[in-house]
């Protein structure tokens, strides 16, 4: 799935560059939006694994619910940090 995504991006990039020479193919705000989207994608992918493990742990022992929840949302920090690009580019 990751491979497909990388292929998708690499096949698009040259097309975008062929656009108008004067202005950048991807304006700063769009690039920032892309950055946030990609970060969210990465966070989601890592949460898939952590979430599965956390649900397994909670199924065995209820008291692990809090810890599992915290570990599952930790990758969310990726998205929050990526939001910084919005303010820098904005």
């Amino acid at each position: 799935m990751l491979e497909q995504f990388v292929m998708f991006v690499t096949s698009f990039a040259p097309l975008l560059q062929e656009g108008a020479a004067s202005s950048p193919a991807i304006p700063p705000q769009a690039a920032a939006a892309l950055a946030v989207g990609l970060a969210a994608f990465g966070a989601g992918y890592s949460q898939r694994g952590i979430g599965a493990a956390a649900v397994g742990a909670v199924a065995e022992d209820d008291s692990l619910f809090g810890r599992g929840l915290i570990l599952t949302v930790l990758p969310e920090t990726l998205v929050i940090l990526a939001l910084v690009t919005l303010f820098v580019a904005g």
Binding site: A52, A54, V55, G56, A57, E60, D61
Partner: peptide, 16 residues
């Protein structure tokens, strides 16, 4: 394969 889920459950049971 769902390694994450199964190994966590197995490890938890092994510890018990």
């Amino acid at each position: 394969s769902n390694y994450e889920y199964v190994t966590t459950r197995a490890k938890s049971r092994r510890a018990a």
